[in-house]
Simulated assay, not measured.
Amino acid sequence: MTKFESSVKHILASQAAVFGKLSDLSNLENVKDRLPQDKVKSFSFDSDSLTVEVDPVGKITLQIVEKEPFKCIKFATTTSPLPFNLWIQLLPVTETECKMKLTIGMELNMFMKAMVQKPLEEGVEKLADMLAMIPY
């Protein structure tokens, strides 16, 4: 399994508040306007799944498969050109601050890894930046 990790993001909100917001995907309405319009063709979601269509990748659907209250939210793809998992990990700093890190894990052969490594590293970092900026 190949893993791609974001840098650790500092969020000025409690671990519980961030977990509560991110573990219910219907809260994503206020991030739609932050998506890069030149790359994202469509974006839809309900409480436990989201679907995004991105150039040049295509359609990706992520489903929440596990929640560990206040610490971790795990997603798996149900539709994707390359199946992968995504983990959002949260750690408390104080009662009003926490840290977040995103990890993408996928099975890749050496050829595919060479092709997708840079876009995935950039993508997981941009996603982490976007999630860190949401008002919690």
Rank of each mutant, 00 (worst) to 15 (best):
T79K: 12
Q63N: 14
S80L: 05
E68R: 10
M100I: 09
L50S: 08
K59R: 12
V57G: 07
D33Q: 14
F84L: 03
K32P: 03
E68M: 05
L91W: 15
A16E: 07
N27P: 01
F19E: 00
D46S: 10
I11V: 09
V18D: 02
K59F: 04
L50Y: 11
L22C: 03
P83C: 03
F19P: 00
L82R: 04
E66T: 04
K74T: 13
S80R: 04
A13D: 02
P81L: 08
S23E: 07
K39P: 08
M106Y: 08
E53N: 13
P92C: 12
P81W: 09
P83A: 06
E68V: 15
K21L: 09
E66P: 05
K41D: 15
M100C: 07
I88T: 00
A16V: 03
V40W: 12
K9P: 01
S80M: 04
K71Q: 08
S14E: 00
K9W: 11
E29M: 11
P36I: 06
Q63T: 14
V40Q: 09
K9M: 05
L28T: 04
A13I: 03
I64C: 05
G105W: 12
L90W: 04
K9F: 09
L91P: 02
K71M: 07
D33H: 09
K9D: 03
L91Y: 06
L12Q: 15
L22T: 01
E66Y: 09
H10T: 12
S42K: 13
K9Y: 12
K41N: 13
L108F: 08
A17Q: 00
G105P: 06
S23Y: 01
L62G: 12
S47N: 12
S14C: 03
Q37E: 14
Q37N: 15
L90T: 01
K74V: 07
V40E: 10
